[in-house]
C-alpha cells in the first residue's frame, strides 16, 4: 500500500512512525520506569521530602513557607503579609511562597524600584529584629530565584534569635542552640553555601514548645 504513496508523503509517514516509537519509549516507558524505581526505593524524596506533625504533612522540607500573622481580612488578596515575630522569617519571595507561581522578581541590577525595595526591606528587617541596618545580610533583603527558597544564611538566622526567644518567652540560649543544630554546612564540604533551612528550623521550634 505504501508504495502507492508519493515520496514526500511516505517520508513524512516514516517520520511520524518513528516519532510515535520514540514517544512510547522515551515518553511513556522511561518516565514510568523511573517513577516505579523512585517510589519503591526513594519514596520520601520522590514525594517531596515532606515534614509531618502527628502524621499530617505540614511542609515540604524543600519548599519555603510564609510565617506571617493571620490576615485581618482573609479574603483580601492584596493585604500585605506581616511577619510573625514568633517564627524565624524566610527570605522575601516574588510569589509569596506560592508553589503554583514559582519565579523571581526579574528586576534589573540598577532598577530604581528594586533599589528602593531593598532599602525599605533593610530598614524593616533591622527594626523587626532590633539590630543595626548595616548588619542585615543580603539574603534578608533580596528575593530568591525560585520564590520558594527554604534557606537563609546562618547570619540571618542568628540575627532573629533574640526576637523569636522574646516573642515565645524562651531562653535565648536554647533558641540559639536550636539554630546551631540546624546550620547545614556545604555539601561534601565545598559545594554551595552554609545555610539554615527555615522550614525545618521552625518545624523544630514548634516541637520545642
Amino acid at each position: 500500500m505504501r508504495t502507492h504513496l508519493p515520496p514526500v508523503l511516505q517520508h513524512h509517514l516514516t517520520a511520524l512512525r518513528m516519532l510515535l516509537a520514540f514517544t512510547v519509549i522515551t515518553g511513556i516507558a522511561y518516565p514510568l520506569l523511573v517513577t516505579g524505581i523512585a517510589q519503591a526505593g526513594f519514596s520520601h524524596q520522590a514525594n517531596g521530602s515532606l515534614l509531618t506533625t502527628n502524621g499530617t504533612p505540614v511542609a515540604s522540607g524543600l519548599i519555603g513557607q510564609n510565617f506571617a500573622l493571620p490576615k485581618k481580612n482573609p479574603n483580601d488578596a492584596k493585604e500585605p503579609l506581616r511577619p510573625d515575630p514568633k517564627w524565624f522569617q524566610p527570605r522575601p519571595s516574588a510569589g509569596g511562597y506560592d508553589p503554583t507561581i514559582s519565579g523571581a522578581s526579574n528586576l534589573g541590577p540598577n532598577n530604581t524600584d528594586l533599589i528602593k525595595t531593598v532599602r525599605d526591606r533593610r530598614a524593616a528587617v533591622a527594626a523587626f529584629d532590633g539590630v543595626p541596618p548595616v548588619s542585615v545580610p543580603a539574603d534578608a533583603v533580596t528575593a530568591s530565584g525560585s520564590g520558594l527558597d527554604p534557606a537563609i544564611s546562618p547570619a540571618y538566622a542568628y540575627e532573629q534569635v533574640a526576637r523569636v526567644a522574646k516573642a515565645r518567652r524562651l531562653d535565648p540560649a536554647e533558641v540559639k542552640r536550636l539554630v546551631a543544630h540546624h546550620v547545614q554546612g556545604r555539601v561534601l564540604g565545598f559545594l554551595g553555601q552554609e545555610r539554615v533551612n527555615v522550614v525545618e528550623l521552625n518545624h523544630g521550634l514548634a516541637r520545642l514548645m
Binding site: 527570605r91 523571581a104 522578581s105 526579574n106 528586576l107 534589573g108 541590577p109 540598577n110 532598577n111 528594586l114 533599589i115 531593598v118 532599602r119 533593610r122 542585615v136 545580610p137 543580603a138 539574603d139 533583603v141 533580596t142 528575593a143 530568591s144 530565584g145 525560585s146 527558597d149 534557606a151 537563609i152 544564611s153 559545594l191 554551595g192 553555601q193 545555610r195
Partner: peptide, 26 residues
Amino acid sequence: SVSSTAGHAAGGMMEGKETRFGIWAS
C-alpha cells in the same frame, strides 16, 4: 556587585539567586 546599585544596597548580588547555591554555583 560591579556597576549594580541594587547589589551594593543589598550587600551582595543575591536577588534572583538561591541561598543553597550562592554566587559561585549560580
